[in-house]
Design a binder for these strands. Structure first.
Length: 282
DNA sequence: AACGTAGCCAACCGCGTGGGC
DNA sequence: TGCCCACGCGGTTGGCTACGT
């Protein structure tokens, strides 16, 4: 069977995703769902392979992604499931809500496996975590924060400019420090603070505010698009408010005004009938 | 302060599989 | 029935940061 190429490679972007690409992808899926990954990038105006879009969505942009450290329970579950299922990461991930197969795979190879090799009898325990080299390990969340910030200024600028989206990405979520941190800077109106290292209290505060804000939205505001996509209550907070700000068309909307903004943009997008038209606005 | 190394995570690659024609 | 297409999965790699010397 001749294998079809996943996409014509010429002219397609690879590597780290830019904030704009993330935004386009999220906005598109938000509006249309993802019935056809292969066609999606073209329709969304993305110079990406469909596979790449799918991966990005599943592993990073999906609204119900849970980030941050794995709890002891989660790790124990992974160990048990791995014993039962082997390297069937997707099957294991199915038992851990909010965790992706890729993430679990990474955690297995970087943490759990090594620990088990060092202590085959012992189960997983976050407390016993790094038997790894004496690398004074910062909490994973802190590392993630750094790494996210380092992603060619991608994530930070994206999240900073898009608090609505960042909150959705990190929603349902224990921690997504980069988003929280950036959002803190935005919500405090101090953009310089984005690069400051002394944000922790602000970040925590912003995260709380985010959660409260999310709860103030109702899924009834949006038409049904994709059952699985819309089944998450967090999804309703995704993207459009962020787009307003990204587009420089509005100051960060209050929870009260964002519903109207979202309706406005949704209407605009629906009328345009093609997300590529967004580039005109951009 | 500079350099080398280890650790981590996002993204890519290639294959298997199922569904439609 | 066989072919083609798209999707999903698991393995691997690249790039970045933090740590140790």
């Amino acid at each position: 069977m001749g294998r079809a190429p996943c996409c014509e490679k010429e002219g397609l972007r690879r590597g780290a995703w830019s904030p704009e690409e993330d935004q386009r992808l999220v906005a598109y899926i938000r509006q249309h769902g993802h019935p056809n990954w292969r066609a999606l990038p073209r329709q969304a105006g993305l110079l990406r392979c469909g596979k790449s879009c799918r991966l990005r969505w599943i592993n990073y942009l999906r609204p119900d992604i849970k980030r941050g450290n794995f709890s002891a329970d989660e790790e124990a579950l992974i160990v048990r499931l791995h014993r039962e299922l082997g390297n069937r990461w997707s099957a294991i991930a199915a038992q851990l809500p909010g965790r992706t197969d890729n993430e679990i795979k990474n955690v297995w190879h970087t943490h759990i496996k090594k620990r088990l090799e060092g202590d085959p009898e012992g189960g997983a325990s976050a407390a016993g975590r790094p038997k790894q080299k004496a690398r004074k390990s910062k909490p994973a969340a802190a590392r993630n924060k750094k790494q996210a910030a380092a992603k060619a200024d991608n994530s930070e600028t994206f999240m900073t400019a898009s608090p609505g989206l960042s909150s959705s990405v990190s929603s349902g979520v224990t921690t997504f420090a980069a988003a929280a941190e950036s959002t803190a800077a935005v919500s405090s109106g101090d953009t310089a603070a984005t690069t400051s290292a002394s944000l922790q209290p602000e970040a925590a505060k912003a995260e709380t505010e985010m959660e409260m804000e999310m709860e103030s939205f109702s899924s009834a505001e949006f038409p049904p698009i994709d059952e699985s996509f819309w089944s998450s209550p967090d999804v309703v907070d995704m993207g459009l408010g962020a787009m307003d700000e990204e587009l420089g068309l509005a100051s960060p909307p209050s929870a009260a005004t964002r519903d109207e903004d979202m309706e406005f943009w949704l209407k605009m997008l629906l009328e345009s009938g093609d997300m590529r038209d967004l580039s005109v606005v951009l």
